[in-house]
Design a protein around this nucleic acid. Sequence first.
DNA 1: CAGATTTGGTAAAGCGGTTTACTAGGAGAT
DNA 2: ATCTCCTAGTAAACCGCTTTACCAAATCTG
Lengths: 333, 333
Amino acid sequence: MATLTDVARRAGVSPAAVSRHLNGRITLPPQTRARIDAAVAELNYKPNLLAKRLSTGRTEAIGLVTPEIDNPFFGELAAIIEEAAADAGYAVYITSTRGDLSREITALGRLRERHVDGLILMTNRPDDGALAKALSGLSNVVIVDEDVPGAAQPRIFVENSAGTRLATEHLISLGHRRIAMVGGPPGLMSVTERQAGWEAALAAAGLPPGPRLLGTYTRAHGRAAAEQLLAEGLPDAIVACADDIALGLLEALREAGVSVPGDIALTGFDDMRYAALIDPPLTTVRQPAAQMGRLALAHLLTLLSGGEVAPVTRLPVTLIPRSSTAPSKVPTP
Amino acid sequence: MATLTDVARRAGVSPAAVSRHLNGRITLPPQTRARIDAAVAELNYKPNLLAKRLSTGRTEAIGLVTPEIDNPFFGELAAIIEEAAADAGYAVYITSTRGDLSREITALGRLRERHVDGLILMTNRPDDGALAKALSGLSNVVIVDEDVPGAAQPRIFVENSAGTRLATEHLISLGHRRIAMVGGPPGLMSVTERQAGWEAALAAAGLPPGPRLLGTYTRAHGRAAAEQLLAEGLPDAIVACADDIALGLLEALREAGVSVPGDIALTGFDDMRYAALIDPPLTTVRQPAAQMGRLALAHLLTLLSGGEVAPVTRLPVTLIPRSSTAPSKVPTP
DNA sequence: CAGATTTGGTAAAGCGGTTTACTAGGAGAT
DNA sequence: ATCTCCTAGTAAACCGCTTTACCAAATCTG
């Protein structure tokens, strides 16, 4: 590989001149410029990024910390962010933490060690303060989708409570009265808020809350919840706090011979790809993944250039009615 | 941030001693070692990776080039690779090329510029030689899932033709006679091989090939193919070369009032997550994504440590029968 | 006890850029 | 003719770590 010095020698100037010319920090007379450009072309010179980075302290890379890159929702977010980052000249390090604190911390370490310029952080774990502590003092971080209580970094969420409120209102308008909620990990902000939306809609309609089953954001939890509800007596409808949970509910209910939406209505949350393709197509609350991804990157770029950014941004969600919800068979009084 | 020199000063030794001790390239007497370790701890010293990299020329990072990170199949592969790479001490740069040659080339450039130590490359585009040319001379690259004709790097594929042969034999054993194939981009190795498997199974059973519709590995192509088949007269069964294609077929057929598997049987390829959850659950050929990912990384690590690796590895596929295939209603003669 | 070997380090030259501080030479102003 | 300013660069320090080559003192060997 040709180095800057090789180019300089060939062009008959100093390395400094070449460096400054290439970075647009000096205006040289046309002939000199032409000689340098020619030398660059002839030697097929490519700057060594490592050297550049060491020198400037900037890496032109960002990190993306996701709980699970193979979850379509995070995959979509990652794809958008990667594309937008590439357009802005940044490479992306992706970490799939699988909900493991130590891998989250490792990723933060990369920022501390100036291995990346900034970080977009997503977690799906209730934090006991360890992650917040690891975040303290770090700038150039944007928290997305799920809160890390106690952290000072800017964050981007969706209107969680509005989402479940919409879903619950939709179910109520279809004539359902006894509406259960199956949620994710207790203590997680998104779960708390989604629960609040469900409760608010019920309260507004003068209905008592149905059963509430928290657990994890997994298909397995959906299955377990279905079994519990089957044992205790099925409600009219279920509001699931994630599409994955809804999928588990659906499987277990179908196996038990319960028809969705014939016997029970079901709503999800996320609108992951495939939510429309399952049987029955899932009524769900759409999170604007693409918009979140783009905004997260935009925020991060603003931070990187020394700008300021709103401490909390909330993006709207929309209810996508499909076939997993149908009018109640019990006539509305 | 404390530097090596700070540590050295505090421990009363030279920077060289600290560096060599920390990298295990010198054995020091216990007291000296203790002084250095103490200084490291007190200053909370973290080596600057950038500097280390510039010095050693190694980056301890690999690149992962995928066509679409938001496709669950590639997502699963990426998750496995990322996890295994992290265990081996490598960070992972992920690029989602969206089938764009220039982004593939950019990723290769990162290797050329010694920005990463090695690369795992997946593509889903028939190459006109441009990618092969960009690959020439690069070592530490493993090609996965799809071929790049003319490239010299080791590669890992699945038994494509065996996969469609299994699927086609399965359909034949269910009594289907007129079996169509809906494939991906013409010229792509996986497509050619999958077509060969379909033809071989039909030939072995003494059956003529049904319609063959090539296109892209997308749901849209599946829809278009379904429309064409509907217009030309439906076959008994369809072998789709990808689950995404099968999904498109399924949608369009359902909209046309054709029942799967009642009126027509359908098989996919990949066994992506959700293939089991759609309506009807999809009979498909399972590609061992996890195994491919792990093997790709193992190969790359072998290359990185100067080892040799098989030029071509083929992994077996398995047929996963589900409900999208059922016995033909036409009695077998 | 001289010479050889081991122990326990060090000095300094990279790695390949960037950047600050500086200067030789010519043009313009007085 | 002198002073100032601008143009077109250059020299050298620096980023933080690694590594080669080397050396002084201590220990062993014959």
